[in-house]
């Protein structure tokens, strides 16, 4: 039973897009830019702009020079920085929760994480189809939410990003927050 379904976050509206050849570079770029204090958001590039992988980084275009400098300093490989077109989509950010009495299942997009209400231990992950998902399944199960590895750090694909989102929501619930 779905107890609630939430929607969040307005579209990032920075006007610029960084294009990459592969997902790993995009994830690294997001990490280093956030560490450097930039506001960025992972998005799908419009088909007309797509040059490599299906993940791009929405940025504030006016900050292009500083972003290129950070990429150079941190060894981030990217294809291009372009103005953002009108048709790009953001990663799905629709979260729902199912209460199974002793357990809670959180679904973010196509990925699900289930944990024990009493102990906070992850008892299952499900959904997805990319090859890191069985690996993440094995890495996460049996670990407490607070001690589980980050799918974003050890995974490689879009499914891993969605699993990360589900895990973050589980943590918020477990720690007594209202979720985001």
């Amino acid at each position: 039973m779905d107890l609630f379904r939430r929607k969040k976050k307005p579209r990032f509206d920075g006007g610029g897009l960084v294009l990459f050849m592969d997902v790993h570079d995009a994830l690294k770029a997001e990490r280093v830019l956030k560490s450097a204090g930039y506001k960025v958001s992972l998005v799908a590039p419009p088909l007309a702009l797509r040059k490599g992988c299906d993940l791009a980084l929405a940025i504030t275009l006016v900050q292009q020079a500083g972003i290129e400098r950070v990429f150079g300093e941190k060894g981030v490989f990217y294809v291009d920085i372009v103005p953002l077109g009108p048709n790009s989509a953001e990663l799905l950010d629709i979260v729902s929760m199912t209460d199974f009495d002793d357990w809670v299942m959180v679904k973010a997009g196509n990925m699900k994480v289930t944990f024990d209400k009493e102990s906070g231990v992850i008892v299952n992950t499900s959904g997805g189809g990319c090859p890191d998902i069985p690996y993440l399944h094995a890495e996460l199960i049996g670990k407490k939410l607070t001690e589980a590895p980050s799918p974003k750090e050890i995974g490689f694909t879009l499914c891993a990003l969605m699993l990360q989102r589900a895990l973050e929501e589980c943590l918020l619930l477990w720690q007594g927050g209202e979720g985001s």
Partner: peptide
């Protein structure tokens, strides 16, 4: 091209 990017 991936379920993570479905039109809302």
């Amino acid at each position: 091209t991936h379920p993570a990017y479905i039109t809302r």
